[in-house]
Design a protein around this nucleic acid. Structure first.
Lengths: 191, 191
DNA sequence: CGCGACGTTGATTTGCCTCAACGATTGTGG
DNA sequence: CCACAATCGTTGAGGCAAATCAACGTCGCG
């Protein structure tokens, strides 16, 4: 909870009223590994802030293969943002990949915060800017780099995630198969 | 120019003062095919709004191959957003791929607009939200679909762009080579 | 213990890349 | 106005990175 307030204060200066308001509607919730917070086809009400633990969002292709769009650890936001920002049913799933603590914000509450506290509008814009930066970088990496190089970038960028995430989730984020990632790791060791 | 004002009004209601202010700093500029607006390594001052024509942003890998990150046609914004939002030197290039009309906004002017007109903050947030949606969709397509399927999605999504864009630019956007795209197109015709 | 989840390894296939050559079209200078 | 070069798309032959399919070892847990 302080986690969230500190995060916001890292980007903007937060008025006492805004802090009070946000605290009042924030309820930390414990969820356990494997729990599905958003399922394909549902209308999406919530965006989640991760206090601790790890979630991921992923889609499923026509051969039933999963593809991870995003991981979210402590201090990150996650949802099916496609669904949230377009008001369409979810095309993604969001699940906890370990026991976690989160705060759920429904879209109405967030809209209210935006209209009550213009400062929050700035916070949100900066978040979105950072988000765009990371997505642009990811797309460029996907276009420019080999699977092996992408894996190394991933390790450098998210060393924590590698620790407790099964390999096939990382593979599905990198756009390769579990087997290929295993071979990449083997190759890495023989050096 | 009206192009821009109408675009803004499509998202938010714009006060007369804000409209006046924005108009006063907007200068439409003609640029010709091949012109480079942003070059790798430079500090990036501007974000461009396209009145007419087409630009693209792209990066170059260690084998000197180009990879297109974004196309921008009438009504779109383009820049090296990684550089703009992080204040780092450009990692991308931005060039006109046909004769175009644009408005250049430097970052200071945009910041000023944001602080003077809170309504613009909302506009910017909605733009960023749409941007995030399109990036998420693109990443999911890259993970889920074959090159052939991605090409069809591209055609459906940007029919105008296909008309005047050389094939190798489209290929570099899709993450395949010019030759592969040519074969995909040939296959498409034999059906 | 025995089962399921996870990672690894091997054999084979495949989608796309690379390299190379070749028309078609467009543009340019003599 | 033609000759020539440059640009762009196509096609073929061969190669490679990663996918697929399958089997197996290990670990942790009900």
């Amino acid at each position: 909870m302080e986690e969230l307030i500190n995060k916001i204060k890292g980007s903007i200066t937060l008025s006492a009223e805004a802090e009070e308001h946000i605290s009042s509607i924030s309820k930390v919730k414990a969820i356990s590994k494997g729990e599905l917070l958003i399922g394909h086809g549902q209308m999406v009400k919530n965006t989640y802030f991760v206090i601790d633990g790890c979630l991921r969002s992923y889609g499923i292709d026509k051969n039933d293969k999963e593809h991870t769009l995003q991981f979210a650890i402590k201090g990150w936001w996650i949802s099916d943002f496609i669904a949230v920002y377009t008001n369409e049913p979810a095309t993604l799933n969001v699940e906890a990949i370990k026991d976690s603590y989160i705060i759920a914000f429904n879209t109405k509450d967030l809209d209210e915060i935006h209209s009550l506290f213009p400062e929050f509008e700035v916070f949100q814009r900066k978040n979105l800017e950072r988000h765009v930066v990371s997505l642009h970088k990811r797309i460029m990496n996907q276009l420019k780099l080999t699977a092996h190089e992408r894996y190394n970038v991933f390790l450098k960028q998210y060393p924590e995630i590698e620790q407790f995430t099964p390999n096939y989730h990382i593979a599905s984020y990198l756009g390769i198969t579990q087997e290929s990632l295993s071979r990449i790791r083997a190759e890495q060791l023989n050096k």
